[in-house]
Design a protein around this nucleic acid. Sequence first.
DNA 1: CGTCTGCTTGAGCCTTGTCAAGAAACGTGG
DNA 2: CCACGTTTCTTGACAAGGCTCAAGCAGACG
Lengths: 245, 245
Amino acid sequence: MTNSVFAKILAGMVDLSAEERSVLVKLEERQRSLRRGSVLQREREKISDLFILRQGMMMSYVLMGDGSRQILRFFFPGDMVALPSAIYEEAPETISTLTDCVVAQFDLPMLMAATQGHPRLGALFSVYTQIEQVATNDRLASLGRTAAKARIASLLLDMRDRLRRTDSAVGASFPLGLTQEEIGDATGLTSVHVNRMMRQLESEGMIKRSAGQVRFVNEVALVRETSYTDRYRNLSLDWLPKPRS
Amino acid sequence: MTNSVFAKILAGMVDLSAEERSVLVKLEERQRSLRRGSVLQREREKISDLFILRQGMMMSYVLMGDGSRQILRFFFPGDMVALPSAIYEEAPETISTLTDCVVAQFDLPMLMAATQGHPRLGALFSVYTQIEQVATNDRLASLGRTAAKARIASLLLDMRDRLRRTDSAVGASFPLGLTQEEIGDATGLTSVHVNRMMRQLESEGMIKRSAGQVRFVNEVALVRETSYTDRYRNLSLDWLPKPRS
DNA sequence: CGTCTGCTTGAGCCTTGTCAAGAAACGTGG
DNA sequence: CCACGTTTCTTGACAAGGCTCAAGCAGACG
């Protein structure tokens, strides 16, 4: 394979040197195709492999004692997957595919080796994980302190922005690819209430749904509903070391 | 100052070499005392300093459009503070003290320099941030998919475990140091409902409250209520590079 | 063409929120 | 060390957002 989707994400932050790119390409050499509904990793199992999602959509989730599910995160092309699990004896989350997927697979020693001679790349991995952290904090605030409609609006805006990172065809319209049950499990709602809220967003002229696509009809109103922020923007990275060119 | 509280946390994961310790001590050389109620960093302001909390309790939070507050995290001695904010042009969260505090202050270049010749230390910083991430995921699941009583029980168990990391005097009993309003802002509840649930936990014989202290009377029942996991335990770190001794 | 999964809608309920007010604890100045 | 003001805790009555249960419908897939 001659390219790296993870590099596409990082390239949105800094200009990568040719050498840095080649290191990233190597991380994505070992690829696997997965069917929709595959489980890459199950909660409480020992896992040490990491993945970069190249095509498709995935998610991570936990099952609660009462059988309900909390989806922690959706993954889109370019995302690094399973890093938190790799440091534990037992994976804290289940990871599975939502569509047919292509992933690149590697492990922590390979990651360590990759950053060895490239301190800036190591720092960029840290930046990536911090962005994740901030995005998770945003979701936390969304679940803790906003109403159902706003949670769903946030989720939709987030999906659009993250799809657009690697697919410039995504504009006001994008394929949803989630059931209302999944949206509910991500936002802490029931599928019934997700349904009601989505139709309300539609009847209020904020979104339009058809053939599995969502279109933002009034994006300004949607954003006003949510206080959503794209956390891949407005980074301050002048402290990064010089690249190894 | 001749010691590092952050080293205490890391020492719970691996045996630190003398050289690694001395690097960590240096990070905590510049210290500041802060009054209760001080704001170290305000949401949307530019910040580039990091802190390690040496004494006291702090928190980070965001203010929502409607004036409500979501507390994202409480900080206890040994915790690293403000790392997510340092990579943004504008801080994504406000950080303030809940008690009088002593913090050590440094910045990203100093952190980069510290890990420069110590790859294992750099990796341990990453491990630390991943633990944060997993703990945040747990809170997300707690807010999304558990009832009020369980959220509060989780919070109490988490506080106790994190206080105990650096204070071996903490056992079944610890100083709460939070108002019910703060507990509510952390768990996505109102202070009124927090009150009801805490008295319920008390009347059910799970906890006892007096003079600002919380005592776990029936810890087993409390844990059963919550599916809480201590994320500082059961790490798998055999992939770490050799320490520079 | 039949089955299955996901979407939609209604009715009633329950957990949690809102509003309000009094009691208790805490902190501060005199 | 007391007195007063402020914050925090506690409790009740009522409201509401979101959940549960149930049933019909539509589209996808074999």
